[in-house]
Each structure stands twice: as structure tokens, then as C-alpha cells.
Simulated assay, not measured.
Amino acid sequence: MRYDRLVEEALRSVVRTALTEAATNGLPGDHHFYITFKTHLAGVDIPAFLRQKYEDEMTIVLQHQYWGLKVMEERFEVLLSFNDVHEKLSIPFAAITGFVDPSVKFGLQFQVATDAEQQPSAPEGVAAFTPAGKPAAAGTPAESEAASEGGAPEDDAPEAGAPEGGANVVTLDKFRKK
């Protein structure tokens, strides 16, 4: 059994469920999402100027200024404002490398397969789960609240078992036979 794929599928369903809840009922209280994704993977549909500016990875923020959030089984779509122009982004869940809700100090970090390695059924395993503390994959928002280059390098991630208030990162790759 490929437990790494089962875990990845389960964790991506957390992202899908959170986005579905936001699409249906809006974001309650101070909740907001930082979603980091690979811009060059198959199925990612973003405007050309964003793909050129963020050649590898991009972080979007869903907080106050987003519209038309639609969640499907394999992807989500949202309208965001870039320089006062609404642009549609369509992002497959398989392209997501990070999902953070800083209001409750919750985050998920994924390792995404490259196009050559990517399989339609399930991308390769989970790199890390960050249940508390500083988000491991959130970038600094730019262009209003819409986008920024994403991701903290893995070297900046706290060690597993970090003290209270820091992020506990559990890397499943440590337990996988190679």
C-alpha cells in the first residue's frame, strides 16, 4: 500500500473542504487562507503576466478581495484583483505546495511532483504537515492581497518537536523505504 499517497489525498481533502466551506458560507471571523502553488504544472490556468512574474511558485491570499470561488473535485477557481483588474485563476489541488490559515496557526505543506513525474491519479507523497506555529509555506502577500512569491525554504523549517509556539513539522519521507 502507498500510505504516502493515502495521506496526501486525505490532507488535500482538508484543503478542498476548507475552500468548499469558504465558497458556501464565506470566511468566518479572522480566517483567511494563503495558498501556494506551482505555476508551471499542467492544469494551472493563470494569466500570462502572472506566469511570467512567478515562473515557479506563487502564493495567493483569500481574505477580503476574492470573488466567485468555485471548488471542484480536482481543482478550484477564484477571481482575484491584480492592479484593480479581476483575473480568473484555476488551480488543481495537485499543484498546491502549501495551505495556511494564519488566524488559527494551521498549515499544510505538500511536495509536488514535476510535470515529468506527475501522475494523473495521485502526485507523490507529503513532505510535511504543520499543525501549529509559523506557517512553513506562506509567502508575503503582494499586489493588494492577491499574490506573492511563495514559500520559505525547507532549511528554515523548525525541527520536529520544536518548542511551544514554533511549528512542529513531521516529514513522512523519513519513514518511507527508498
Rank of each mutant, 00 (worst) to 15 (best):
R2L: 12
Y3P: 15
Y3S: 07
Y3W: 14
D4W: 04
D4E: 05
L6Y: 08
V7Q: 05
E9Q: 09
S13D: 13
V14S: 14
V14D: 10
A18L: 09
A18M: 10
A18C: 14
L19W: 06
E21Y: 14
A22S: 11
A22D: 01
A22Y: 07
A23D: 04
T24S: 02
N25V: 07
N25G: 04
G26Y: 05
L27Y: 04
P28N: 00
G29L: 12
D30Q: 15
F33T: 03
Y34V: 12
I35F: 02
T36I: 06
T36C: 06
L41H: 02
I46L: 13
A48W: 08
L50M: 09
R51A: 13
R51K: 02
Q52R: 07
E55Y: 10
E55K: 09
E57M: 11
T59R: 15
I60E: 06
V61F: 07
L62F: 01
Q63N: 15
H64F: 06
Q65L: 15
Y66I: 02
Y66L: 00
L69F: 14
V71Q: 01
V71A: 13
E73M: 03
E73I: 06
E73K: 04
R75S: 13
E77A: 10
V78T: 05
L80M: 04
L80F: 00
S81H: 03
S81K: 04
N83L: 11
V85A: 12
H86I: 11
L89Y: 02
L89A: 13
S90E: 00
A95Y: 06
T97S: 06
G98W: 01
V100T: 12
V100E: 07
D101P: 01
P102H: 00
P102N: 02
V104K: 04
V104D: 00
K105M: 15
G107N: 02
G107Y: 01
G107P: 05
L108H: 00
V112S: 02
A116N: 05
E117D: 05
E117G: 03
E117Q: 12
E117F: 09
Q118F: 03
Q118D: 07
Q119S: 11
Q119H: 09
S121K: 11
A122N: 04
E124R: 10
G125Q: 11
V126L: 13
A127L: 13
A127W: 05
A128I: 01
A128V: 09
P131K: 01
A132V: 08
G133V: 09
K134P: 05
A138M: 15
G139V: 06
A142S: 10
E145P: 06
A146H: 06
S148Q: 08
E149F: 08
E149Y: 08
G150F: 00
A152E: 08
A152T: 12
P153F: 06
D155P: 00
G161Y: 10
A162N: 03
A162L: 05
P163S: 07
G165Y: 01
N168K: 15
T171W: 14
L172S: 03
F175S: 14
